[in-house]
């Protein structure tokens, strides 16, 4: 999976949780869209997003690596790069 492909998947998934007029781009910060307060318990946008991106990586034969610190404060471009290049 390339950076561009993962960025496309991330933007696609973020669009579902976007309840504002914010346009989703490679520079969108995850915290602007995702929250732990918009569901019940762990059925919330932040944890669901993380789960579906990890599912996507696993199903497309990528390593399921630990996510970076403070990933929610990273942009789509930054997080995709860190996930694919993590040790």
């Amino acid at each position: 999976m390339t950076h561009k492909q993962l960025q496309s998947v991330m933007k696609f998934q973020l669009k579902y949780f976007n309840n504002s007029e914010v346009k989703i781009t490679d520079d969108t910060i995850h915290r602007e869209i995702l929250s732990r307060q918009d569901g019940f318990g762990y059925a919330n946008s932040k944890y669901i997003y993380r789960a579906v991106i990890r599912w996507t990586l696993i199903q497309n034969k990528q390593d399921d690596k630990a996510w970076p610190k403070h990933w929610i404060d990273l942009s789509v471009k930054e997080l995709a790069l860190k996930i694919l290049t993590a040790e």
Binding site: S8, V9, Y47, V52, W55
Partner: peptide, 26 residues
């Protein structure tokens, strides 16, 4: 959470299609 969903392809990568609705079971 246990989660069920439909899938689609984005950039030739299979991924959950949340836009079609999905169910979560905490």
């Amino acid at each position: 959470i246990f989660m069920t969903f439909k899938t689609t392809y984005v950039g030739n990568q299979v991924t959950p299609d949340l836009n079609k609705g999905f169910q979560t079971f905490p």
